[in-house]
Simulated assay, not measured.
Amino acid sequence: MHGTLLPHDLLWGLTPGQLPAEVPAWAVAAMAAGQPVVVRRALTAPGQVAVGVRGALREQRYATLMAVADIQRRVRPEDLCHVESDRGWPALQALAQLRASLDSGSWTWGVSGSAGFELASGVPALHQASDLDLILRTEQPMSREQARTLLALLDGAACPVDMQLQVPNGAVALREWAGASPRVLLKSASGARLVDDPWQALEQVA
């Protein structure tokens, strides 16, 4: 019904009664208000998905699990690329600036982080100093030179932009892949490790 759930997907359906007993009060309030949770990278048992509850403050993040059967709605980052907002925060200005250029590329892109949460839910999450978080689905390898060209585009936007390359085995920061270091940090469900090539599944930690 929901297809493959991926990190940064937003899910609705988790209720306060499904949260652990030790959950903070702000997380209970967020679920009582019908807010979504975000899929995170973690290993889980079949039928469950690792999610994070988001509060109003930056430090209010709570990791938990959700039954796949309880999912009522799913919004992916790529569903949010063309969602309009009348709020004039720099992150949304940057999104408007970058939209056409990213649409013209050969990869699928999406909006995550605070901007994605706000555009999907209508719950205010952005402020004047918020970065714009984006994801890029890169099933096929991206060269370092391509990464540098893309980073130069993002660095011309109205606010700092953080893009994650979603590779078959996890994710790597575009800024790292565009940098000079021969190894980059690959984040996966089983943890983070330094790799030479994020698109090679069998690469091991040194």
Rank of each mutant, 00 (worst) to 15 (best):
A171W: 05
L174K: 06
H2M: 13
L202H: 11
R54M: 10
D9M: 07
P160F: 12
P90G: 03
A69S: 15
E139H: 12
D196E: 15
D103E: 10
W12Q: 00
R137L: 11
A21Q: 13
A42W: 08
E176N: 06
G170D: 05
V49I: 13
T64H: 08
Q60P: 02
R54V: 06
G105L: 06
H2Q: 12
E176F: 12
A63H: 12
P24V: 03
Q140G: 05
G88E: 15
C81D: 07
L80G: 00
G34N: 10
R175C: 08
S104Y: 02
V49D: 04
N169G: 07
M31N: 01
A27C: 11
Q93G: 00
S181C: 09
P182L: 14
H82R: 02
A56G: 01
S121W: 12
M163K: 03
V161F: 10
T64R: 05
I71M: 13
A67G: 13
G88C: 11
D196H: 15
F117P: 03
D79I: 08
W177H: 00
K187W: 14
Q128V: 09
E139Y: 11
V195T: 03
Q93D: 08
A173F: 09
M66Y: 04
E176M: 04
W177Q: 02
Q18C: 00
V184S: 02
R183C: 09
E139V: 09
R74V: 13
P141N: 14
A30E: 05
S85C: 14
Q204A: 14
